[in-house]
Design a protein around this nucleic acid. Sequence first.
DNA 1: ATATGTGCAAAATGTTTGCTGTACG
DNA 2: CGTACAGCAAACATTTTGCACATAT
Lengths: 157, 157
Amino acid sequence: MESRIERICVEKGLKMTGQRRVIARVLSEAIDHPDVEELYRRAAALDRRISIATVYRTVRLLEERGILERRDFGGGRARYEPTEHGRHYHLIDIDTGRVIEFEDREQERLMEQIAARLGFEPVSTRLEIYGRRRGTRAAPRPAAQDEETQAAEGLPR
Amino acid sequence: MESRIERICVEKGLKMTGQRRVIARVLSEAIDHPDVEELYRRAAALDRRISIATVYRTVRLLEERGILERRDFGGGRARYEPTEHGRHYHLIDIDTGRVIEFEDREQERLMEQIAARLGFEPVSTRLEIYGRRRGTRAAPRPAAQDEETQAAEGLPR
DNA sequence: ATATGTGCAAAATGTTTGCTGTACG
DNA sequence: CGTACAGCAAACATTTTGCACATAT
């Protein structure tokens, strides 16, 4: 069956190989913000004949085509999510690495206004709040290695 | 003479070596958002006895102490600027890599409100608008290599 | 059929670290 | 003086790439 991202790829005239189909499916089903390593892990679980180089090449291609957006929440690895034209932003819990998404029309309006004032046309925007859960003492981070990948699971979208 | 950042370091009880003094001075005088490589170049121009490892160690230390903030505007390298407690945000010209700073009390207020609504205390925030100068055709990027470093010079602060 | 994509392993980046000698407080 | 820092080069982590082969259109 054709995944949402695969459909978009086809519409944009991309050549769909088996590997790309699998990666597109993984991306379509992701509710978090996986990094390339994680995408590779999920894709390889569905089809072993996928190399990490292909994942890198594919996300780069899809980003160039505007299908994906690259995010960087710190931690050295790029993370990806499907482009959504109703924009949403991120709040990152600095103690756990958990990422919470939110929307805000007001922010969006303000950003457009600011860009216009400076003579620019906004193409994409980033708004991130790094914060601590209310009433939490400044705490040592719990996990470490894949804290950001793992912590972002099962979040409301 | 003691640079602004050096003074802050001393206040925070950091041991000031010759190298740190030079790096602090370079940072104090920077009006752009240099990456580590660029900081190293500027520091080495003042005093040859500085290694890039020291620059990395120093910016990391200063970031941990809240004296510097790390930014990532894409392009794979971390960039640094002195922490300013009156927050400011960035608009990045996607055609040239130029970075324009701006402030907006309204945005700040909104972000605090949103964090509060989600039960969080904001610790730091990022707001970036990637945009294109009005009336510019989607253009191929001009330079390439150090476009971001070089383009950010001479901007209003 | 042909242009494009893929795997693999090697290279290129950007950043961190172990070790030994040096210098600040 | 002792502890923390600096230089160097090697180690690391992530991402990109050259080349020969495979595959979609």
